[in-house]
Design a binder for these strands. Sequence first.
DNA 1: GTGCTTGTTGGCCA
DNA 2: GTGGCCAACAAGCA
Length: 279
Amino acid sequence: MPELAEAEYFRKRWHQAARGRRITDVLTHDRARIFRGTPPLALRRALIGARYLGSEAAAKQMCFRFGGGVWLGIHLGMSGELRVEPPDYLPQKHDHLVLRTGPASLVFADPRMFGRVEFHLGTKAPASWTRIAPPILSDAFRVEAVATFLQRRRRAPIKAVLLMQERFPGIGNWMADEVLWRAAIHPQRAAGSLRPAEVRALWRECRRVCRLALTTIAGRGDYLPPDLNTHIPDNWLFRHRWEDGGRCPRTGVALRRAEIGGRTTCWSPARQKLRPATR
DNA sequence: GTGCTTGTTGGCCA
DNA sequence: GTGGCCAACAAGCA
């Protein structure tokens, strides 16, 4: 599930429950590869009694900050999620980390265990956090930088290039398809074959999809939508990309699906041409 | 049983 | 050294 806006959605969930609280207890699954290098005991020792100070989301990651210089970097991988449960909640099979506050339990669950929880001690955020490329919605995401990147990866299909986090932080499989569909670019096109107007459209739609995804999925300000993805409008490709016999919301033509760049890709053949009409 | 799955990484090869 | 591709990681679901 977790791409840019979902990361922000889950961050807010924990944030609303943790705001102003101290961690009273920490439960971990010892076997979880989720923790990579960190011994769960060290995590327990550092977090119990620590006050929650704040958090941020960027790309597909979250960073939670606690008193005493304790940081938790979280990546949700393919199937991870953050939940808020009652204070006496007992962890289930896929719950790898539970932080108790007075009135709630903050749960990190991940069945497929591609996610990770990074424990970091220090005055500065961990490298895994500061290394993240500048956000697509920041001024640093320039159309010129996109054009240069596309030239460097000129032989790869544009779909695969959009998934590269070093330039498109937070874009995942569904957002990439959404961007290409809106920009009317076939996912199989070589990145280097895009004309300047198409590069510009790609850049613009990256920003638009990020902005729309954040407001519809993660809400505005303190508001948190009750369910992930329930407010995605019907005129997004997102709503039709997995359904059998799905149709393009703009043209009504049957959507196509194929593996491109190693990932299942959905596009509208009516809008997205492999050989664009020459002008 | 089979064949999927909203992610990332390391190894291989050109 | 760089770029492109692919398998592996793991578990649930249809």
